[in-house]
Simulated scan of single mutants.
Amino acid sequence: MPGGRLSHQDRLDIAAGLAEGSGYAEIARQLERPTSTISREVARNGGAGGYRADHAQYATASRARRRRPDGDRRTAQSAGQFGDPRAAYVERFAAMMVDGGLPRMASRVLALLYTSDSRTLTAADLVRELRVSPASISKAIGYLERVGMVHREPDPQRRLQHYVIAEDVWLKAWEVSARTNVNWAETAAEGVGVVGRDTPAGERLTQMAEFFQRLSEDMSGGAGFQDCLSVLAVLWQADRPLSSSELARSLDWPVERVTDAVDYAVKAAASGASGE
């Protein structure tokens, strides 16, 4: 409530707002708090660049315990009240994906969808759970749809769109990471043409382009590796053994291509087991 103590969820929202580049006034409006409350909270807990919700909650509880050494029951309850553990886990899960290269808000949406029992949420659900604006959700969903991690399904009874996480979402994440490496390599190569290969900057950019090109090739593994991933994605979605002819029909491939992909997987597994 406005004017009351900040909850753990409030602090998670403050951290999310800072990560998105929101100002204190904007965060305060979303939380219906005075701007001074937000600025003091951030200032005494690491500043805008170092604010962490869990740390701020723990530090506040610790200060409360020091002020009440008699072990007041209300203080003990406040110290142990860290909000919804699932919400805290969603934020940690999202932070891991941000470290892996996904945009912050897209990571939060994906983490929430992945930890939802139904695997499907509406825009209103996402706004309510993540405490952000509809525009932020729309932008995040647009990104996740473009990379194939999420798709829409209309509600059969109401005029709503449900957002559903892809069955092969981590395969999609791998592909996004591989494409990112290609972009790094291409951008560095373009820079070489701008500054000149024989310049110090050109040498650095050449090394960068070669590094990310090798990394991209290692991740893609060539056509055999890509076919292997496609077969695994179909098997994952089917959740049962499939014959070569069934896989060929699902992928619209010749049976020989399916067989080659399976052979590639078997050889790769054998090579890994032997340590080669």
Rank of each mutant, 00 (worst) to 15 (best):
E41H: 04
S138Q: 08
E32T: 06
L31N: 02
A111E: 04
D198R: 12
I38P: 02
D70Y: 05
E203K: 08
M1P: 09
D260A: 10
M149R: 02
V258Q: 01
S36M: 09
S177A: 15
E153N: 07
L242S: 01
L215H: 11
E276C: 05
Q237D: 08
Q157N: 12
R214H: 13
L205R: 03
D117M: 10
W236C: 05
P254T: 06
H162V: 05
G100F: 12
G275K: 03
S107V: 05
G193D: 14
G100W: 12
R128G: 13
S36R: 14
A188I: 01
A135C: 07
E256F: 01
I165A: 08
A135G: 13
L171P: 00
Q207G: 15
R197K: 14
A201M: 14
G191R: 14
L232V: 08
A265E: 13
E153R: 15
A201Q: 12
V255N: 07
G46Y: 01
L235G: 07
G17R: 07
Q207M: 08
S62M: 12
A173M: 07
Y51G: 01
D125T: 02
G100R: 13
D13M: 01
V147R: 06
E129A: 13
S274I: 11
G83R: 03
K139N: 07
L6M: 13
A273E: 14
A106H: 00
Q81G: 11
D125W: 02
N181P: 00
L251R: 01
R128K: 12
E186N: 05
A76V: 11
H55C: 07
A269Q: 11
L215N: 08
L102G: 01
R52I: 06
A261N: 01
Q9T: 09
S250L: 07
S250C: 12
G275V: 01
W253R: 04
D117W: 09
